[in-house]
Amino acid sequence: MMTTATASNIATSEIAQDGAFVRQQNRFTTPFGDKPGELPVEKDRYRLLWAPICPWAHRAVIVRKLLGLEDVISLGTVHPVRTARGWAFSLDEGGVDPVLGIHYLPEIYARSDANYTGRATVPAVVDVKKGVVVNNDYFKLTNYFKMAFKPFHKPGAPDLYPEDLRTQIDALNDVIFHDINNGVYKAGFAQSQSAYETAWDTLFNRLDILEQRLATQRYLFGNRITDSDIRLYVTLARFDVSYYSVFRTNRNRVIDFPHLWGYARDLYQTLGFGDTTDFHAIKQGYQLGDFNANPYQILAKGPDVSLWHFPHQRAAL
């Protein structure tokens, strides 16, 4: 984040002539693997930097936990409210990441590429040996964790990217990204009424389709959790507490969709999902991160997130 960003730090290059939001490209995209030119897969070599507010970073943290990579890839956490100097490690003692020795995320980006002028985003994977960012490709990062890091998976780790479903998962992931994950940002950061309404319509049309899909099956691909479920979950978890009001995606709340709401609670109550979801940090990041939109820095009291613990009754599917 940003790849999750606030309206006040979106660059003019990310706004098209018609007022539509166009997300910046990732800078560090070298894949992990054992081929020449790829990033070597090693234990204790990498540190994943994340912000609990960021959906892209959150899904990497979920996958890291589901696959048992906590002892393989270390985790650095920034404060959920982005500062004028970028994401800050103010949660750590002295305001410094204990492994990298940096106060702000842009410091490691500058160290990695002195000519980089884009936003310093999370998730960012840092090569601890070299002290530089080596991958911030949020779209493919979870796939690398699932495939390249497979030798380090815990016994019995779920197959989140089964070979027989990869083509279908990739296709659905692309739709989820454009229409939903990034769709809420297209609505929230639009600088014209037409761009906002186009994004709003596309978002809710896609949620309606997925609501029907989940009426007869527990997860997006039947009875097993896949990478697609993780990608959809991170947006659903942020929807009612932030997107609905802050990004004006206000036709329905997730709680108003019977099947999507049960599905979201089902995932939330699964180890790796709810225990990595920080609703307070999410609210702080989206509601307090744009001073111009909220000059008095008032944090909404609701909604009641205890509802996420209510029985989901999805197991029968």
Rank of each mutant, 00 (worst) to 15 (best):
32 F>L: 00
258 P>G: 05
303 P>V: 04
123 P>T: 00
313 Q>N: 14
176 I>Y: 09
131 G>E: 12
12 T>A: 15
66 L>Y: 07
299 L>I: 08
127 D>K: 01
129 K>Y: 10
227 D>G: 05
73 I>L: 02
160 L>M: 06
266 D>T: 13
303 P>E: 13
283 K>C: 07
198 T>R: 14
201 D>A: 13
221 F>I: 06
4 T>Q: 07
85 R>F: 04
119 R>D: 02
307 L>T: 12
54 C>K: 01
251 R>D: 13
76 G>V: 13
231 R>I: 08
213 R>W: 04
252 N>R: 15
178 H>T: 14
91 L>A: 11
262 G>Y: 01
257 F>T: 03
169 I>G: 06
75 L>G: 03
284 Q>M: 15
124 A>Y: 06
5 A>I: 03
89 F>G: 05
182 N>L: 09
166 R>I: 11
277 T>Y: 07
105 L>A: 11
129 K>G: 08
213 R>S: 12
312 H>E: 05
252 N>P: 01
195 A>D: 09
126 V>K: 03
70 E>T: 05
283 K>Y: 00
127 D>V: 00
214 L>K: 06
81 V>A: 09
244 Y>T: 11
208 D>I: 02
195 A>F: 12
217 Q>Y: 13
17 Q>W: 09
246 V>I: 14
277 T>M: 07
109 Y>W: 11
142 T>P: 03
34 D>Q: 10
237 A>N: 04
239 F>L: 10
309 H>T: 14
316 A>Q: 10
97 D>V: 10
81 V>F: 09
